[in-house]
Design a protein around this nucleic acid. Structure first.
Length: 982
RNA sequence: AGGCGCGUAGCUCAGUUGGUUAGAGCGCUACCUUGACAUGGUAGAGGUCGGUGGUUCGAAUCCACUCGCGCCUACCA
């Protein structure tokens, strides 16, 4: 007998099977297979990454889909790989280099980039190792990295092509600048956080001491305030930017300032002798109802101001360097101020380069960081008596999501993708259904963003990444091409013309956007590309719809002429038990590997408190961790973890991760394991399932086969609709509550008793075959345990002769529901049996009859079918309800007893010596109260318009229910009266 | 400000096109170490579905309003 251990132990099993699967190449697509190919692109994790709960969820769902489709026999590809994560990787290696006392600048670009490659070779594969622990059935032979040669060629090709068609351009624009990383970042990489700040109100004195009547009026036009002023009141949250003001803007309809529009006012900071005068202009932008209604315009340091400045040809004076310290370069302040005054006076619009040379930072502030400069400027203005008031105000402060430093809007020259033009077809693809979001609602988020899309800044001032394929000659002309040689050739540039390549690299997401086709070999026309593009489904979280999903759609349509995937399944974000986002910095993250292998409390605390960005939080994190996991985390195994993710993956926005669920599904694994153990104990090792002619299938056999068809159909539906939660529930319910609770129990008396050989043969065959099918049904969700059991069960289910060496459940056919094997008679019969046993068990339970105490059963009102069934299932009833005898007699001949009803049949258990009268009365009263309540509701409905307006079948069903309850009520009432009379 | 979503048993969540006597898992109570499984078994307690109003023969399910919560996008200088 191939007996299994008593308790399921995931570790040995997991370690054994994954390498076998991978080595035997099960995860490679069978390109010769028939049917619609199925392909999934793994969202490439960051090469510096570690597997977190979000990955584990994402990987589980993709693997379930992939294994499911692979088992249906179609060519199936799950394409893996990682991205080069420009900023993250460069930062990581830079820190290492700095720890060694060097720096990237000291090393030089080439050496530093080599060093990153070296790091990648040694440590860049951590997350892929972790994915194997999850059982991810990706085709590792096709693993790609965004900086691979092929993918780099694709990037270059796309860049050159878009440039040539005018969809990529270079321009001086205001971008989000990260002063720590010293690079531009996209607006998606900026995180706005509410921060306590101030709003400072300053007086900007009018030129030559001019005055005006400042008048405020209410809605009816009555004057509410009047004052003679020689200044205009300006509020700002960022006083340091005042130095670069180009104008003061007021709304054209704002009567308060009409008298002074066209005049000039003085920026109240800097050496008195050279204070700059700026014009007061009108623009639609200022909101008269907010603040003073007048806004200072600093085009080079604010996105709104930038637009106003562009509209009004105002000069944009850059005040800071790449570290966001106030500039020290360029001309001296007095010269700069004079030049700026000239520009105001003449109304000229100098070109951007010329303006950039003008450094309007007074010497006293030069070199200060922006926050120190702010303090000094405020102090100086206050000392001058030009500070009106300081308000406390919560402001939305932009932070870089990598550096966590305050992002500075900075005027720089960058490369951009004209996203609006690419977005139009991408919007259409979702509108017309070529791409489907699941759940569908996410399309709204997508549209919202796509319809307001801004040009995409794709250049980064980094060394690690795809270098921009653009070259400049000495006069600054730009040439774009695959490499220097082709640029020279295409532009007839002689060898003596000096060309230098653009120093910048491309945004990592630029290469990720090409992932669905670059990984398949594009721009070459490969078999993989032909077979698998468009891919079937993208599985990802909503947090990267903009970053990645939208951009893949744009690029796919542009370069492949077709959508990159047909479905986008968006799952929730994994949160902790309190609903908080898991993060390292909060110290509430769980490592999926720890849930698989287990971790003791001390190790968990150490892990959560080490390497924290804010070490002062360590004590709090430790306390919370000790409270939440007093015993650490048990080892649940991969299958239990995966099943949990599937069960939690409903169509919601977030997923609260509950350890209790993992434990429950670990128990489920054990249940399955033991069901198999039981099955293996029921058949000899050389078991060969009998042929149809030699077996007799009992109602229980036919019932479980029938139920199996139903759950097979459910699983197919749930996979097709991405309802992993329902799939998990359906499988769980079938295994636990059908197979284990009933089928295995029902067959025990058959196999152990004196049933016919044909009946035993039928039951054994059914047992192993249903189990074998169930394993295949579960395999996409729990690959390891199902493989392990299947290896022992499959030979029994099919017979040794049909079993080949070296087979795996991975490549077996996924069970398909067969409507012909749904057996309603067997289902009705077993439902009846469950009611009989359930009724008796309820009596036993509520009457406190000891489990070992057998009960006599008296039956009244049995129909012929009841009688037949009682005979047929006598062994099961005795075994499962502890019955010692069954006697049929007339109702009034039965002594005082507890009663259960199954249809019209009364099941009576005599009270004598067994049953407490009071308890039975209480039980009957409870049941009668419930019947009364339900019956009242039903009768009320039947007495209303319901009978005229509701569909006939619904009315009939309701009538039948009411009739049943009325009969039951009558019998129980009668029964109650007799017992009460005792 | 706009968009999206959520509020169903103590907890975490299902509930498909309105027709049930509103479900599951965990937790809880009682009993049970019976020979697959105590990571188990049997029985049981526990919700009128955030609130109000409406549509309908019928609403957890549709509509309106309302309260509470969350997320995203854009922000007022």
């Amino acid at each position: 007998m191939a007996e299994l251990d008593k308790t399921f132990d995931p570790h040995a099993i997991e370690a054994r099977w994954y390498p076998v699967w991978e080595k035997r190449g099960y995860f490679k697509p069978d390109m010769g297979a028939e049917g619609e190919p199925f392909a999934v692109m793994l969202p490439p994790p960051n090469v510096t990454g570690r597997l977190h709960m979000g990955h584990a969820l994402d990987d589980t769902l993709q693997d379930a889909l992939t294994r499911y489709h692979r088992m249906t026999g179609v060519p199936t590809l799950w394409q893996p790989g990682t991205d080069h994560a420009g900023i993250a990787t460069q930062m990581l290696v830079e820190r290492q280099v700095e720890a060694e006392g060097s720096s990237r600048h000291a090393m030089g670009r080439e050496t530093f980039v080599d060093r990153i490659w070296q790091w990648k070779a040694e440590s860049g594969g951590h997350i892929t190792t972790q994915m194997r622990r999850l059982g991810a059935s990706v085709d590792w032979s096709r693993e790609r990295f965004t900086m691979d040669d092929g993918l780099s060629a694709a990037v270059q090709h796309v860049f050159v092509d878009l440039y040539q068609r005018g969809l990529i351009y270079r321009g001086q624009r205001l971008v989000n600048w990260d002063p720590v990383l010293k690079t531009a970042i996209s607006d998606l990489e900026v995180e706005s956080v509410e921060t306590a700040g101030h709003m400072w109100h300053f007086k900007y004195p009018l030129e030559d001491g001019a005055t005006y009547e400042y008048v405020e009026r209410d809605a009816e036009g009555h004057e509410t305030f009047r004052e003679t002023r020689d200044y205009i009141s300006i509020a700002t949250t960022r006083p340091e930017t005042m130095l670069g003001d180009g104008a003061i803007a007021v709304h054209p309809d704002d009567a308060r300032y009409a008298p002074i529009v066209g005049l000039k006012c003085e920026i109240p900071v800097g050496p008195k002798a050279q204070r700059r005068l700026i014009p007061i202009i009108t623009d639609e932008y200022p909101d008269p109802a907010f603040g003073s209604g007048a806004v200072k315009i600093t085009g080079a340091h604010d996105f709104n101001d930038y637009e106003v400045a562009k509209r009004n040809d105002l000069p944009m004076y850059r005040l800071m360097d790449d570290a966001a310290a106030l500039r020290v370069d360029g001309m001296a302040y007095d010269a700069a101020a004079m030049r700026a005054a000239e520009i105001v006076a003449t109304g000229e619009t100098p070109d951007a380069m010329a303006v950039d040379a003008i450094n309007l930072v007074p010497e006293a502030y030069r070199g200060l960081n922006r926050f120190e400069a702010r303090r000094r400027i405020v102090a100086d203005i206050e000392a001058d008596g030009l500070l009106i008031v300081i308000e406390d105000k919560t402001i939305m402060q932009p932070f870089g999501d990598r550096s966590n430093d305050v992002i500075e809007p900075m005027l720089t020259r960058q490369w951009f993708v004209d996203a609006k033009r690419l977005a139009a077809p991408a919007i259409e693809a979702v509108e017309d259904g070529r791409i489907r979001f699941i759940p569908e609602n996410w399309s709204k988020t997508y549209f919202e963003w796509m319809r307001n899309i801004q040009d995409w800044c794709i250049s980064r001032q980094l060394w690690w990444g795809h270098r921009i394929p653009a070259w400049y000659d000495e006069s600054g002309n730009v040439y774009v091409g695959a490499d220097e040689a082709s640029v020279r050739q295409a532009n007839n540039l002689a060898d003596n013309v000096a060309l230098t390549q653009d120093e910048d690299v491309l945004d990592t997401w630029f290469s990720s956007a090409l992932w669905p086709f670059s990984t398949l070999g594009w721009p070459d026309d490969t078999a993989a590309l032909k077979t698998f593009y468009p891919t079937s489904v993208l599985v990802t979280g909503f947090d990267i719809i903009f970053f990645w999903v939208a951009r893949m759609i744009m690029m796919g349509l542009e370069f492949m002429g077709d959508v990159p995937f047909r479905d986008i399944y968006i799952h929730g974000l994994v949160r902790d038990a309190d609903g908080a986002k898991m993060s390292k910095s909060k110290g509430n993250a769980l490592d999926p590997i720890d849930l698989i292998d287990g971790i003791d409390l001390e190790a968990l605390v150490a892990k959560r408190t080490s390497g924290m960005m804010q070490p002062q939080k360590a004590a709090k994190v430790e306390k919370a961790t000790r409270a939440e996991f007093p015993n650490g985390i048990a080892a649940y195994g991969t299958d239990a973890l995966r099943f949990t993710f599937a069960a939690l993956a409903s169509y919601g926005r977030d997923i609260r991760f509950d350890l209790g669920r993992v434990e429950g599904y670990r128990n489920f694994c054990n249940k399955l394991w033991n069901a198999a153990r039981f099955a293996l104990m029921q058949v000899p090792e050389d078991f060969v399932p009998a042929a149809d002619g030699d077996v007799e299938l009992s109602a229980a056999d036919r019932w479980i086969i029938s139920r199996l068809q139903r759950v097979e159909a459910d699983m197919a539906t749930h996979f097709a609709t991405y309802r992993f939660d329902l799939a998990a529930n359906a499988a769980h319910d079938f295994v636990w509550h059908h197979l284990c609770d009933w089928y295995l129990e029902l067959i025990k008396p058959v196999l152990a008793g004196d049933a016919s050989e044909a009946a035993k043969a039928g039951t054994r065959r059914t047992l192993v075959r249903v189990l074998e099918t169930t394993l295949r049904l579960l395999h996409p969700l729990m690959p390891f345990i199902t493989e392990e059991i299947w290896q022992r069960v499959a030979p029994l289910a099919r017979g040794r002769a049909l079993t080949k060496e070296g087979e795996s459940i991975s490549l077996q056919a996924y069970p398909v529901s067969d409507a012909a094997r749904i057996d309603e008679h067997a289902e009705a019969e077993i439902e009846w049996l469950k009611k009989v046993i359930g009724g008796l068990r309820t009596i036993r339970g509520e009457m406190d009859i000891a489990p070992k105490q057998k009960i006599p059963l008296m039956v009244a009102g049995a129909a012929t079918t009841d009688r037949d069934r009682l005979t047929r299932h006598r062994r099961a009833i005795d075994f499962l309800a502890g019955v010692e005898s069954i006697d049929e007699m007339a109702a009034d001949a039965i002594p005082e007893s507890a009663v259960a009803l199954v249809g019209d049949m009364q099941l009576r258990v005599p009270l004598a010596g067994l049953i407490d009268t009071e308890a039975e009365l209480a039980r009957l009263d409870k049941r009668l109260a419930k019947i009364d309540k339900d019956l009242t509701g039903l009768n009320k409905r039947l007495g209303s318009d319901f009978v005229n307006k509701a569909p006939a079948d619904v009315v009939d069903k309701t009538r039948a229910q009411a009739d049943d309850l009325t009969r039951e009520q009558a019998e129980l009432t009668d029964q109650r009266a007799r017992i009460a009379a005792l």
